[in-house]
Every structure is written in C-alpha cells, then in structure tokens.
C-alpha cells in the first residue's frame, strides 16, 4: 500500500493544512508520497521533502499549473494513480474542487471530509451538517479520500529529507481559463488555524459595526469569522464564513457575537474547545453549545469586553 497525498500550496509555500492531511495519510499507511503540482514551485517540493512522514516527493511543473485548475490537475493524478492504493487531500475548496474529478476518472466512490481513519478502508465522516457521524467502508480497489484538516494534528515540518523526483506534465485543458484571484490579505492568523476566533452574525446590524469585533480580535490576536447571515448581508467577505458550507474551525476559544446558532453555523464551530456566546436573546440556540453564555446587548458588551481585556496584565497570544 502507498498513499499519494496531493499537496496544497501557493507555488511558494505549502498551505498549513497540508501538514494535517499528511498526518491523516500516514494513519492510512506509512508509505506517504507527496505530489506537488504547480509552476516554479521548487521551494514547495523542498518543504514537502522535509516533512518526516513523507517518504518521497513528486513534482510536476508547467505554466498552466500555476493556478490550480482542477481540469489540469486531475489527469496528472490519474496517470500516477496506478502506483497507489489511496489518493488523499484536504477537504477545503482546493480538494473539494479537485478530488471528485479524479475519483470519477478512476471509477471510485470518493469518501469526503473524513474526521477519523479507522483502518485503511474504513473512515468516520460527518453527515447532515455534523448532526450524525457515519462510519463507512470503501470497497473500491483504489480509494479517493478527502480529510477534514481540523480533525487531524499537523505533522512535524522539519527533519525529513525525502527524495524529490519530477514526473511528467499532462496536456493543458484549454477550455477553462484562470482570470484572477482576489485574496483578502490580512496580518491576522488564518481563520482555519487560529487559536482564537471571534465571529459576528446578523446581530452586528452592519459591516461598520464589525470594527467592535476587529478591536477585540486585535487585542487577542484572533481571526475573524462570521455567520452566513452576516456574509449574505454584505457585512463581511465570504472567506470569513464559518459553517456547513463555509469553513470548519476548531480553535481553543470561539466567541460568537450576535449569532443565533443555526444548525448550519454550529456545524462549523461546535468542536471548538471553549465556546462563548454573546446574544441578547436568551433563547438563542447558540447558548446550547456555549460553555459561557452572556445574555447582553452586544453593543454594550463588546466595548466592556475590550475594556476588561485591557485591564489584564497578560494575555496569551
């Protein structure tokens, strides 16, 4: 058995969640090979080779791999698939977009978004927005699996020295063209990996009021999240959405402000270690998952919260 792990990167660095995916891959089988498809991405291949759990790195480079178009990536993976029993990557928008295209070509029923490896063919995955956990066994000869990164710890990132080999590029798929990517640059920790997340919902009333959340995020070195309602209303951009169809976060501390707690939002945050809810509606469902609930008007509570934080001598970052 060997596992082919598709690395997610930006042609310069490995994306943090690739480390979590490597951990999951190594639980399936110890012979993990990392596949880096990109353009001018030698530094990424080098970083992948330094992961102690990775036994070999394969790189495939071409100009048309620069923007991670699934139609270009899938044939590269299916061509290499013969040597592997499992193909694995993270279940974020990169992997969700790519893996089914590979699975269909291999005539494999994909196992999406696993949270646990039971054995090489059996996995646990959440269904119905995490309201149920299904244990499933794949009977396909070749298995395509996407993993929920927040359910696996990141692997060590240094000390390894796996050999790096290059593999052949495939043909360009000319019917899909990349136009542009608008990435929201921020100095804050990434939402998916932040130790503390503070999120706002419809109760924020407008985008300008998110400055109350920003001030606290600055103080706590926290990432900023949002409910779907807040994103739909245009208060904040889509990359902040936490929930069933947004991002799944598992921080040490999750602070939900003005979020009622729809099932779909809870799906994205209820595994957080400590949950705080601030909401003026005492009956809001968010309180059912909160370790600490504060029934209060957020426009009074948030400035007080900042004031109390300012009084503390030390804050863990």
């Amino acid at each position: 058995m060997s596992v082919l792990l598709i690395a997610e990167h930006n042609n310069k660095e490995l994306k943090a969640f690739t480390l979590n995916a490597v951990t999951a891959a190594s639980q399936i089988d110890s012979d993990v090979h990392a596949l880096v498809i990109g353009n001018n991405c030698a530094e990424v291949a080098q970083a992948a080779s330094e992961l102690p759990l990775v036994k070999k790195v394969l790189t495939v480079e071409a100009a048309y791999y620069a923007n991670f178009i699934a139609e270009n990536f899938a044939p590269v993976v299916t061509k290499l698939a013969g040597n592997y029993t499992h193909i694995v990557c993270s279940a974020n928008t990169f992997g969700k977009n790519l893996m089914p295209r590979i699975a269909a070509k291999l005539d494999t029923s994909q196992v999406s978004d696993i949270i646990k490896v039971v054995s090489a063919d059996t996995f646990v995955r959440p269904i119905y927005a995490g309201n149920a956990f299904a244990t499933v066994k794949s009977t396909d000869e070749k298995k395509c699996v996407t993993i929920r990164p927040t359910s696996f710890d990141p692997c060590d990132s240094s000390g390894g020295s796996a050999p790096i080999e290059s593999a052949d590029a495939g043909e360009e798929f000319s019917l899909t063209k990349f136009v542009k990517r608008e990435e929201i640059k921020s100095d804050r920790p990434e939402l998916g990996t932040a130790r503390i997340v503070i999120s706002g919902g419809r109760g924020m009333q407008n985008g300008d009021n998110f400055k109350l959340i920003t001030a606290i995020a600055d103080k706590l070195n926290a990432a900023i999240g949002a409910s779907r309602a807040a994103v739909d209303a245009g208060y904040i951009s889509n990359d902040h959405q936490v929930g069933q169809t947004g991002k799944v976060v598992v921080p040490d501390l999750y602070i939900a402000v003005g979020i009622s707690g729809a099932i779909q939002h809870l799906a994205g945050m209820k595994e957080s270690k400590i949950i705080v809810a601030i909401n003026k509606d005492g009956e809001a469902p968010i309180f059912s998952v909160a370790d600490y609930g504060l029934e209060a008007d957020l426009f009074e509570a948030l400035p007080q919260f900042l004031e109390e934080l300012n009084k503390l001598n030390t804050i863990q970052k």
């Binding site: 990169f94 019917l175 990349f178 542009k180 608008e182 998916g192 951009s237 889509n238 990359d239």
Partner: peptide, 16 residues
C-alpha cells in the same frame, strides 16, 4: 465568466 468562492476569497475563471 464565473466568480467562485474559495477559502482565500474569490476566484474568477472563464469557461467554454
């Protein structure tokens, strides 16, 4: 021309 919601923000692609 399609704008896609991705983890990092928004991506625009053109497909035939």
């Amino acid at each position: 021309e399609v704008i896609r919601e991705i983890d990092e923000g928004l991506e625009t692609i053109e497909i035939n």
